[in-house]
Nucleic acid binder design. Structure first.
Length: 268
DNA sequence: CAATGATCCTGTCCGC
DNA sequence: TGCGGACAGGATCATT
């Protein structure tokens, strides 16, 4: 599932693939995949990319001319660069056409992904409240302590809440909690400052390692050039049966998601 | 405000 | 071989 490292990989790939070529069209093949801002100007395309930014699991791409794109892959969304266009592919929900004749397919089996095209001045309307960026200085143990002090839900649920930390999903939360040696069911407001410091440190570490290898390709995640990431080879608990120290991995449902952890290494 | 559960959706896998 | 059901899960919405 695309989380921060995968979104970062896809966004960088998209920006590099499109380069300075202008986008000439955005077509939608599945109702609801492309959302158009009611205040859009009539002449959006052709438009050159001006800048880009990842916000949590959201990609934002600003276009010259005052418009912006927001892309969210949700669970199965993919951007696929194709220098020679074809008829719409299976599961192709939308498509960017480029002035040089290439296209970028938006493939999304489960159709939850979204592409929003809006006036740049309206961008914030299309983004939810996002918490701290985990790779930026604002993400600290003190910040987490403040966020979590009123919460009793398991720490794993809190870390999946995008309004607390932006960009983490099931895989990386499982992994960072293992590295931080924290049991996923620990009530959020009972995680002490020392443990929160480990959480912050391991969050940064695991995300940086994953970004460095192009993300995690479980199920069918691919970069825009159809390359697999390789962080799946470094997972320690997610979908594992044994932790690196040889203990049996447990799996409990938290917030409706499989939560892999080591009962020996991870403590409340 | 916090927490929970249903919802969206389709491919895959399991058991019978 | 085929079929029903569970499962995968990010975000949003309604409900408690």
């Amino acid at each position: 599932m695309p989380e921060l490292p995968e979104v970062q990989t896809v966004l960088e790939g998209f920006i590099e693939a499109v380069g300075s070529t202008r986008i000439t069209a955005l077509d939608c093949y599945y109702p609801g995949t492309v959302i158009l801002d009611p205040e859009l100007e009539s002449s959006v395309f052709p438009a050159q990319i001006q800048g880009h930014r990842r916000l949590g699991k959201y990609m934002t791409i600003s276009l010259k001319g005052g418009h912006s794109l927001v892309v969210h892959l949700r669970m199965t969304g993919k951007l696929v660069y194709n220098p020679s266009p074809d008829e719409p592919l299976k599961h192709e929900r939308a498509r960017f056409s480029l002035e040089n004749g290439a296209v970028v397919h938006f493939i999304d089996i489960r159709t939850f992904g979204k592409i929003i095209l809006c006036k740049s001045s309206n961008l914030e309307r299309y983004l939810p409240n996002l918490g701290a960026e985990p790779l930026e200085p604002c993400y600290t143990a003190a910040y987490l302590q403040k966020q979590l002090s009123s919460r009793k839900a398991p720490i794993k649920n809190a870390l999946l809440d995008q309004s607390v930390v932006a960009g983490l999903g099931n895989i990386y939360v499982c992994e960072l909690l293992y590295r931080a040696k924290i049991h996923p069911e620990t009530p959020s407001n009972q995680v002490n400052l020392r443990s929160l410091q480990r959480i912050v440190k391991e969050t940064r570490q695991v995300l940086a390692e994953a970004i460095a290898v192009g993300g995690t390709s479980v199920s069918d995640f691919r970069s825009i050039d159809d390359k697999t990431g390789s962080f799946q080879n470094f997972l320690r608990v997610y979908q594992k049966t044994e932790c690196p120290r040889g203990h049996k991995i447990a799996n409990v449902k938290l917030a409706g998601r499989s939560s892999f952890y080591c009962p020996v290494c991870q403590h409340p």
